[in-house]
Simulated assay, not measured.
Amino acid sequence: GKVPILLPPLPEQKKIAQILSTWDQAITATERLLENSQQRKKGLMQLLLTGKKRLPGFEGEWETRKLKELCAIKTGKKDVNEGNPDGKYPFFTCASEPTGSDEYSYDCEALLIAGNGIIGKTHYFKGKFEAYQRTYILSDFSNAVSVSYLHQFILYWLMRDIDREKQHGAMPYIKLGLLQRFNVFVPSIEEQQRIAMVLSYADQEIDGLEFKLNLLKQEKKALMQQLLTGKRRVNVETEAA
């Protein structure tokens, strides 16, 4: 009841609402496009990472290999409070995005899987980095597997396993044995690379839409700060902001 409301003339109120509504419509439309793109990629993963649909020019049976046969699996060494957000090197923890570290313990190509927190969140990185002690590091990959293919395979199949376990209340964190026993479907290296390329194009489309959506939200926020405070006035007569 004590909140002060800034009230410009009614025509100006309507114009401000109209301008912000235009941004809302653009945000909603982009959210819909993003959701459609994510669903398309999910459908592609379901077909291509199971062998239900083969890309042109490929045939033959796929092997099934244990993850531990395709790479080394270990955990990080650092406690999460040893990081520095302004550090030079990425520090992979169990959060959605890496933070920073002043030091690094690893210098390699790796897939990094959150063992708790945002369970199963997987990043690809090549170079110097640090890792939290509950983050799994996959490295030293076999010549039988494409790292980009394995990344996509883990994103789809490991998350399915985790989601299924969560529904039974049995997945507070990932145990090493689950990763060691994790089955990977392995076509020829050429087919793996082609599958990864197709899914990478889908990722690029999703990333582009996510960038556009964040930009629209920032623009609307900036407009609200200007228009709902009176710092910027709208010209009602010419209907131009």
Score class of each variant (00 low, 15 high):
121 K>R: 15
46 Q>A: 15
182 F>D: 07
73 I>G: 00
9 P>S: 06
203 D>S: 05
176 L>H: 13
163 D>M: 11
229 T>M: 04
80 V>H: 05
190 E>S: 14
43 G>K: 11
126 K>I: 09
5 I>W: 01
152 Q>F: 10
113 I>N: 02
192 Q>E: 11
106 Y>N: 03
84 N>E: 01
209 L>C: 13
154 I>W: 06
216 L>P: 07
117 G>V: 07
198 V>Y: 03
188 S>D: 02
28 T>Q: 13
28 T>M: 07
55 L>S: 07
14 K>A: 15
26 A>P: 03
213 L>Q: 10
24 D>H: 04
17 A>K: 09
207 D>A: 15
102 D>V: 12
83 G>V: 00
222 A>D: 07
144 A>L: 15
77 K>Y: 14
136 Y>M: 08
20 L>V: 06
144 A>I: 09
110 A>R: 00
147 V>H: 01
30 T>G: 06
189 I>N: 06
118 I>H: 14
209 L>I: 11
234 V>I: 09
170 A>Q: 07
181 R>Y: 08
48 L>D: 06
225 Q>V: 05
116 N>Q: 11
67 L>R: 08
41 K>D: 04
237 E>C: 01
235 N>P: 07
85 P>Q: 11
190 E>L: 12
56 P>R: 07
108 C>E: 12
45 M>S: 13
142 S>W: 00
195 I>R: 08
77 K>H: 12
91 F>G: 09
41 K>L: 05
205 E>Y: 03
163 D>P: 02
239 E>R: 07
223 L>G: 01
168 H>W: 05
176 L>Y: 12
56 P>W: 00
48 L>M: 08
213 L>M: 10
124 Y>A: 12
230 G>Q: 06
17 A>T: 12
113 I>V: 11
167 Q>N: 07
232 R>Y: 08
76 G>R: 08
152 Q>T: 07
4 P>E: 04
2 K>E: 14
208 G>H: 11
28 T>A: 15
199 L>D: 02
127 G>Y: 03
33 L>S: 15
205 E>R: 10
47 L>F: 04
171 M>Y: 06
78 K>H: 13
111 L>Q: 02
65 R>Y: 04
173 Y>T: 08
25 Q>V: 09
38 Q>P: 05
104 Y>V: 04
10 L>F: 14
